[in-house]
Simulated scan of single mutants.
Amino acid sequence: MKNSEGWDGKLRMEPKAVITNPEALEDSDYSDPEAPPVEEIDADEDLSAVLTFSSIDQDIDLVHCRVSSIAALHLDRFNKLRRLCLRQNQISRIDFPSNVAATLTELDLYDNLISHVKGLEEFHGLTSLDLSFNKIKHIKNVSHLVKLTELFFVQNKISNIEGLEGLNALKNLELGANRIREIENIDHLSALEELWLGKNKITEMKNLDSLSNLRIISIQSNRLTHLHGLSALPNLEELYLSHNAVTDLAGLEKNTTLRVLDFSNNQVSHLEHLSTLKNLEEVWGSNNQLASFEEVERELKDKEKLETVYFEGNPLQTKGPAVYRNKVKLALPQISQIDASMFILDSFLRSLD
């Protein structure tokens, strides 16, 4: 479920996109302003009457309906329920009938009032669990959910990564917008492909060496000053680390599969250490201290797959805005996009050569 600009409330980043409503990360009581109006229902018991799907229905969506009691929905009527979405309600307690637990594979409780993870003891078949935008302080009582492939705890009050033992099938872990200071207790998640840690208090990349299947790391808006700790990730394709305090790009030399590199809003002054990254397709480096077009050409011209670069807000652009785009195009003739602007005609003509 996404708003009109494509943002789904998590710290996800679509290709060539940025978070469109960052205020959600600052306000612990935030609710999606694009959500439909609250349905006028007097009580949860009235919702039970509205919920008239047949007993063989597998998907139920009750979004923004003022649900406060799961029990009042009488979900025991549904014997084959596979996916249940209760986003943006007023649920504080997880309390489902046993027959729902036996069949459910996807449970979405995003944006409710849950403070403790309890009541999931019988949900052994869950593959996706979303508890984002709640009031949870500790990750507990999920380690028995061994079939989980997706787990979301975005925008809670979590200080420690813990309680994930046994989740060996997990591919996507989202912990953005919490209070985490250290990457820890995830070294056993050998199947993990995506790790989202934006908007925390992390100072270094650590304890990642065993996660050889990681393809995406998002760690923007933290407290990083360097990029050491990534060299053992041979399959890393996308790295998002904007809004940190990184001063150089050392530490990426062995990440030769990297396609997308976003180091916007840091303190990088040179494009060194990128010579081995032959598969780069996008380089986002806006609002740093890059000043040399010669260095841009030297470090990036040989990247034949490179299509997009973002350099606005650097001395490259601010000291000569009138000639900036032409100089970038001369330095990197293979690209088709500079900042937010694309030159499609140039790309089309090159394709005819």
Score class of each variant (00 low, 15 high):
L352W: 11
E281I: 02
E150W: 02
T256H: 07
K137G: 09
L197Y: 08
K140L: 07
V309H: 12
D339C: 10
S98L: 10
L306D: 03
S98I: 05
D353R: 14
L86Y: 05
V296P: 05
A43I: 11
A291Q: 10
K319M: 06
D76P: 04
L167T: 04
T247W: 07
P315V: 07
E281G: 09
I186A: 00
T52N: 14
G320L: 08
Q88V: 01
F343M: 09
L192H: 12
N207S: 08
K16S: 08
I94M: 06
H226K: 13
F53T: 09
K171M: 11
A340S: 12
S190V: 12
E272K: 10
I183G: 00
L11G: 12
L109W: 03
W196C: 07
L145F: 01
L148P: 03
S92M: 05
G119S: 11
G125V: 01
I335Y: 05
Y110E: 11
T318V: 14
G320T: 15
H273G: 02
R179V: 06
K147S: 09
I114G: 00
F263A: 08
I335T: 03
L109Y: 00
E237P: 11
L345H: 14
L192P: 05
E237Y: 15
D108C: 08
F348L: 15
G119F: 06
N207T: 04
L252G: 13
K278R: 14
G119Q: 01
N222W: 09
N185R: 12
F96I: 01
M13S: 09
L109K: 01
A191H: 05
K137R: 06
K201L: 11
G176Y: 00
I19D: 07
N207V: 03
R259D: 12
E162I: 06
A340M: 11
T127E: 00
F311K: 07
V117M: 00
S128F: 07
H188W: 07
E294P: 00
D57T: 14
G251E: 02
E121C: 01
A72S: 14
C65G: 02
T247S: 14
A49L: 11
L277I: 08
R259N: 13
A340W: 13
E34K: 11
L280D: 05
V142R: 04
T276H: 10
L197K: 02
N222P: 10
G125F: 10
K278P: 01
I183K: 02
I202R: 04
I335C: 08
F348W: 12
F96Q: 01
Q317P: 06
K118S: 09
L300Y: 02
Q88I: 11
S336L: 03
S92Q: 07
I94R: 00
G6E: 13
L233R: 03
N207F: 00
A72Y: 09
L345A: 10
L175K: 00
F96Y: 02
C85Q: 06
V146R: 08
E253M: 12
Q289H: 14
D8Y: 12
G6N: 13
R325M: 10
I139W: 03
T149G: 01
A24T: 03
I217S: 03
D111S: 11
F152S: 04
